[in-house]
């Protein structure tokens, strides 16, 4: 069984990975030491291209089926990662989001494809769409929860190693510098608006006038170059300037 020393080795080796294949093998070796059969380290986007982090050893059939059905958008793990910053067991995903029938089917389908019990670590980097690292044992095996406090590091360090490899080849399509600079105050106003608060309510909560709230939102819209407040919310969410958890956990 893996020891914390294996994680420290992984941290050092992942930093020096020459390419994505070497990194993929390294992740596989390290996670197997801890009893995990499958992993998936990825940004959450439906388009699988070379321009986002996407490393996995999931069964081919399962990955293809998910892609074909365009189920990525309803994937319960993806949804849950957008709502929390804390690692969670798949068996407890129902505590993070309420599962629809379609989402329960996905979890059952994964199990039939050989992917057993697992856990996921959300990865939120400002200016990029949400990502995660997931680790699973083979179907029928039991997951040793004592490994999670060590293995969860693999998600963050593997994700970063992959980002650096992609950035080096200019393949990562996120340009943080191109993000409109919004102040914390403007973000506060967007979050309150997205929670359904009126400008007047938002002003009361923030201790500023209704007029000032309106000005903050107008400035933010101009910085994004969008006409409506709905577009502003969508863009701020997509860019991770605000999170779903800001809007839902009120």
């Amino acid at each position: 069984m893996g020891k914390f020393r294996d994680i420290q080795d992984f941290v050092r080796l992942s930093r020096d990975s020459r390419d994505l294949d070497a990194l993929r093998n390294l992740i596989e070796d390290t996670t197997r030491t801890f009893g995990f059969r499958y992993f998936l380290i990825s940004h959450h986007v439906n388009v699988l291209g070379p321009n986002v982090v996407q490393l996995s050893n999931y069964p081919e059939d399962w990955s293809n089926a998910m892609r074909k059905k365009s189920q990525f958008a309803v994937d319960p793990v993806v949804r849950a990662c957008q709502k929390t910053a804390v690692p969670f067991l798949w068996s407890e995903v129902g505590r993070v989001i309420s599962l629809s029938t379609a989402q329960k089917d996905i979890l059952d389908g994964a199990s039939r494809a050989g992917i057993g019990a697992g856990f996921s670590v959300p990865v939120h980097i400002p200016g990029e769409c949400t990502g995660s690292g997931s680790f699973a044992v083979a179907s029928g095996r039991s997951l040793d929860e004592a490994t999670i406090p060590s293995v969860n590091y693999v998600a963050a360090f593997a994700f970063e190693a992959a980002r650096r490899l992609l950035l080096r080849t200019d393949k990562l399509n996120f340009d943080v510098d191109a993000l409109p600079g919004l102040t914390e105050r403007q973000l506060d106003c967007i979050v309150l608006m997205a929670q359904g608060k009126s400008d007047w309510d938002a002003g009361r909560i923030l201790g500023i006038s209704q007029r000032t709230v309106q000005e903050h939102l107008d400035t933010a819209r101009r910085r994004y170059g969008v006409g409506s407040r709905a577009q502003l919310i969508v863009r701020a969410l997509f860019d991770n300037q605000i999170g779903f958890q800001d809007l839902i956990h009120t």
């Binding site: 910053a85 959300p122 590091y153 963050a156 360090f157 970063e160």
Partner: peptide, 11 residues
């Protein structure tokens, strides 16, 4: 750090 901040520090 909080675990969730880890990726930010690395990034």
């Amino acid at each position: 750090t909080h675990g969730p901040m880890f990726s930010n520090i690395l990034a």
